[in-house]
């Protein structure tokens, strides 16, 4: 870890000193490229009231390649599979080094507010979402209560 790029230092500094509302990202002490992230479920979404844990890792080639992000908290969402992997364009083909950790986490928060069952990662969830939306939203709410709400 002798040479952490200035860009990472700067992003970390800003994430800690001027955090995005509803999002926290704290670097691990052992590895400054590994972040423990929490995202609050957006208001008026089935995830409202939940606090979702994620892990974020900056590969050696960052920012030439996208950060790797994964949900650690179980979540019922058509674009997030049961391993927590996220289907989001900016994490894959649409990554650009002009984006940053902050913008990626905001995109993920937006994905929670607007699930897109037409581009699914979790096929069963997406199908449920398309066929019985009310039921699916109810399940998402239950899961949020069960896994993402701390007593």
């Amino acid at each position: 870890m002798s040479s952490l790029p200035k860009r990472i230092i700067k992003e970390t500094e800003r994430l800690v000193s001027d955090p995005v509302p509803g999002i926290t990202a704290v670097p691990s002490e052992e590895n400054l490229r590994y972040f423990n992230v929490t995202i609050e479920g957006p208001d008026q979404s089935p995830y409202e009231g939940g606090i979702f844990k994620l892990e974020l890792y900056l590969p050696d080639d960052y920012p030439m390649v996208a950060p790797k992000v994964r949900f650690l908290t179980k979540i019922y969402h058509p674009n997030i599979d049961k391993l927590g992997r996220i289907c989001l364009d900016v994490l894959k083909n649409n990554w650009s080094p002009a984006l940053q950790i902050r913008t990626i986490l905001l995109s993920i928060q937006a994905l929670l507010a607007a699930p897109n069952p037409n581009d699914p990662l979790a096929n069963d969830v997406a199908e449920a979402w398309l066929q019985h939306e009310t039921q699916a939203i109810e399940t998402a709410r239950e899961w949020t209560k069960k896994y993402a709400v701390l007593e």
Partner: peptide, 10 residues
Amino acid sequence: QPQNCSIQAS
């Protein structure tokens, strides 16, 4: 998965 994604996760 954690090994792939973040090798140094504790």
